[in-house]
Structure formats: C-alpha cells, structure tokens
Simulated scan of single mutants.
Amino acid sequence: MARRPRHLSPEERALWDSVARQAAPMHRRRAAQSTHVSAPKQPAPEEANPPARFDPLPRFHVGQKADAARPDDLLPGLRDRLRAAPVAMDAKAHGRMTRGKLKPEARIDLHGMTLAEAHPELVAFILSSQAMGRRLVLVITGKGRARDYDAPMPVRYGVLRHQVPQWLALSPLKQAVLQITPAHIRHGGEGAYYVYLRRAR
C-alpha cells in the first residue's frame, strides 16, 4: 500500500521558512526544480554576505611630515626628558652648568663596565662625594654601541647611559642627588651626566 505524502503543519512550515531564509542552495538548478516545498527566493551568496568595506587610508607622499599630534608618539628621548625635568637647584648655577661653565669637582668613568660592575662603583662614588662636600660631579657612561648585546626584542643602545639616571633616582642615591643633566660637549656630551649633589647633613 502506497504511503500518503505528509503535508507540513503551519508550525513546521514556519520553521522551514526560517531555515530556508538563512541558507544558500548548493545546487541552484536542482533547488529550482524541486517542487516538494515552495520556499521564498533566496538572495545570491554575494548579496547575502556583502564584502566588508574599508575606508581608504589617506595618501602619503615621500617627504611628507608625519603628524606630530598623534597620541601614540614614542617616548621622548632620554636627553629631552632630563632637560624637561624641573630645575631643583639654583637657576643661575643650573644655567652655567648646562653651558659647561661649571667645572666638575670629581668624575667617575663607567664606560666599558657591565651593569653589575657599574652600579656599586656609582653608589660608592656618589655617596663618598657627598660626604666630602662636593656639589658637582661628572658621571661618564659612554654613548654605547649600536647593539650592546643580542636580545629577543629591540633595545635602546647605550645600556649604561639609560640605566645611570634610573639608579640616581632610586635609593640609596636619591637622597644625595639634587639634579641630573646631560653634560656639555666639553665634558663628554651625550656620553656623560652632570650630577649636582645635595649638601651633606
């Protein structure tokens, strides 16, 4: 006995229509010839999923200046940060110092040392200089090589040159240091720092 075809109930038809609207037929011709259930016309795949549109980037010309107002600019250079630091010492003496008019009373040369070697030498030099009543000393770090050591990530060259100001801003040296300024060219320029000390108590 032949089985009578089963018709969809209203609930089943609504469910089918919902699924059909979200699906794209794999074989258009076969789907068009199907007469079992009439489903609404489906949009073409390119209509159903239109390609994402991206705003074009502004044109850039060789020689064009970069936008200086970008909020994600890189951190300013070390010399710029030190020069922008507030003046804690006498302003007139500070001006003479930055122009190379003040002669350092003592100096230490850390050039060529490792970080482990340089730190205790710097601590001993600064604290003993303060105890002796010195006010202006010169710390020579060297400019550093373009690549001091192999690292998995890019690093600034001149490890000592960047580390010494941080050491001077931390204990036990922080209490002894009043001002740190890049040295004038006659005293080493980018490879040295003027360190103006507080008076010993």
Rank of each mutant, 00 (worst) to 15 (best):
A31M: 08
R79W: 01
R29I: 10
L160E: 05
R161G: 09
A131Y: 01
A124F: 02
A93H: 07
Q130C: 02
P58L: 03
P50V: 12
M26Y: 08
K174H: 03
T114L: 15
L173Q: 11
A84G: 05
E190L: 04
Q42K: 10
R201E: 06
L75A: 12
L136V: 14
R186H: 14
A118D: 14
P5H: 05
K41H: 11
S18G: 07
A39L: 15
I180C: 00
F54G: 05
R30T: 11
A32I: 08
K41A: 15
G144E: 01
M26L: 13
A52H: 06
M1W: 09
A85Y: 04
E11L: 14
L82Y: 05
P86K: 09
R96N: 04
K174T: 01
H27F: 11
I180R: 01
A131N: 00
R70E: 11
L115K: 14
F125I: 05
R198P: 00
L178Y: 00
L178G: 00
L78R: 09
G77R: 10
R13W: 13
E121M: 12
G142Q: 07
P120M: 05
P58W: 03
G142M: 06
R59E: 13
R59S: 10
A151K: 06
L170T: 12
Q166V: 13
L136P: 03
E121A: 15
A118Y: 13
H94N: 02
L170A: 15
P76Q: 10
R135N: 11
Y194L: 01
Y194D: 05
A124K: 05
D67G: 06
A20F: 06
Y149C: 09
T114R: 15
P154Y: 03
V159S: 09
R99N: 00
Q166C: 06
Q179L: 01
V159H: 09
L127S: 02
P45A: 09
A24C: 06
A118W: 12
R199N: 05
A93T: 03
A32V: 10
T114K: 13
H111E: 15
Y157T: 12
R201M: 00
Q166M: 13
S129W: 00
R53Y: 06
R70G: 05
T181K: 00
P25N: 11
R6A: 08
R59Y: 05
R134N: 03
Q166T: 11
Q64C: 07
L75W: 06
F60H: 11
A151D: 13
L8Y: 02
R83F: 06
